[in-house]
Design a protein around this nucleic acid. Structure first.
Lengths: 228, 228
DNA sequence: CCTGAACCATGAAACTTCTCATTATAGAAG
DNA sequence: CTTCTATAATGAGAAGTTTCATGGTTCAGG
């Protein structure tokens, strides 16, 4: 993954470079003409484009890029902050903009967003337990040939139990993962969804694989319940 | 924030150290006795404790710690993986456990969870816009002296607009932040909540500060709507 | 074996979120 | 100024989530 930073302030450019290197191989340009040239000569996955640039301003760079049919996602960097700027940028085909000064974390968030949106997530992973298959991409479940309706939280829970099969997971662990530790809700919700999930799996007799461990939590276990 | 790693495998200990240094100042011990000694002599915010240790096993360390009334959160590291182990660990007062081998990301997640849970988040930040006050901790809103009911997503949206006041935010930006870019939903939901939010603010005439920018997004603006 | 306390399961109801169809509006083009 | 089109606003209903109250289960201690 390659990123081009077009920014004349060398300090800022270096800072951005450091941050972005978590996600990209980074190249830099320090004025508009150089930036346009590089963008036309290479294939980047994303371009960070300052507006106030020597020789050719950012809007012009963006306009010419689009005229050359280069559709690389462009994130505009603007100073605080006329409305007109944004209108202008989006009209020319910018994908996002960031107002300076910005937080490192914000930049990463926006970069990730642009990348994900452009790369249409392709991992179609699947998790399997006996006859039960979870399609993690479409979030659908089937047992053998029959679709099982596991919506939202039920699917999340099933996925987490399966991920940790044959290992006890506490209600706190489940809660932290699915609801997030700063949720408004309490861990009691885990019991509710354990119940719902079992109900959904019951017609297939798969509820018997979900075992309760008093005072501990739950486990999806290969060994079936011993009766009597 | 200080973390103590009690782990005899020096490679693993070093790996954990690297990961944990994002969040903590790290100290290490390489056997049970040394670990117990350090834990009794210093104040840590969290302890990572292996079970299989020379001289004194992890359970014994944990038991003695608790006997000494040291309530530092302890995360147990166990190999894959007897049930008895976990029962044992939790009975002695462990706060969490991680099964080896684990992902770096999982370790960070658990560390954060333990820390947050123990440090009872204390930031009671507040965001203000004219007479409108958002209590970010309790997620409640008031205008002047009157409580305004903004539930869930409405509050999220208000918070995000306020965070970016006098700056246009696109629907994509709002969506990415509040719903997350891999959400099942579409950005159209943003319009729905903009509408709901305005409705909630209308009795206080605060809806007039939320402006729509066609083709761009929304802005919470200090300047009131110009009429006529 | 019986009892009590803690813990868990579960259904029903309240609430929130999301979808979708309809209506309204801004802005461009004639 | 009027019309047309794309975009946004909104209400209603469907779907999903959470709360809560009740009843069941386990396990320790008599």
């Amino acid at each position: 993954m390659k990123l081009l930073i077009i920014e004349d302030d060398r300090n800022l450019s270096a800072t951005i470079r450091e941050t972005a290197e978590e996600l990209f191989t980074v190249e830099q340009a320090f004025d508009g003409e150089e930036g346009l040239f590089q963008a036309e000569q290479n294939i980047y996955d994303c371009i960070l484009l300052d507006i106030m640039l020597p020789y050719m301003n950012g809007y012009e760079v963006l306009k010419r890029l689009r005229e050359s049919k280069i559709q690389t996602p462009v994130i505009i960097l603007t100073a605080k902050d006329g409305i007109d700027d944004k209108l202008h940028g989006f009209r020319e085909g910018a994908d996002d903009y960031i107002v300076k000064p910005f937080h490192r974390e914000e930049l990463i968030f926006r970069l990730k967003a642009v990348v994900r949106r452009s790369s249409g997530r392709s991992e179609d992973e699947v998790a399997v337990f006996h006859e039960l298959t979870l399609d993690l991409k479409n979030r659908t479940a089937r047992i053998g040939d029959t679709a099982v309706v596991l919506n939202g939280r039920q699917f999340d829970l099933m996925e987490y139990l399966l991920l940790n099969k044959n290992s006890i997971v506490t209600k706190e662990q489940i809660f932290d993962r699915i609801w997030g530790f700063d949720s408004e809700t309490t861990v009691a919700i885990v019991e509710v969804y354990a119940s719902k999930l079992r109900k959904s799996l019951k017609p297939f007799h798969y509820d018997r694989f979900i075992k309760t461990f008093r005072g501990l939590g739950y486990m999806l276990s290969d060994e079936e319940e011993q009766d009597g």
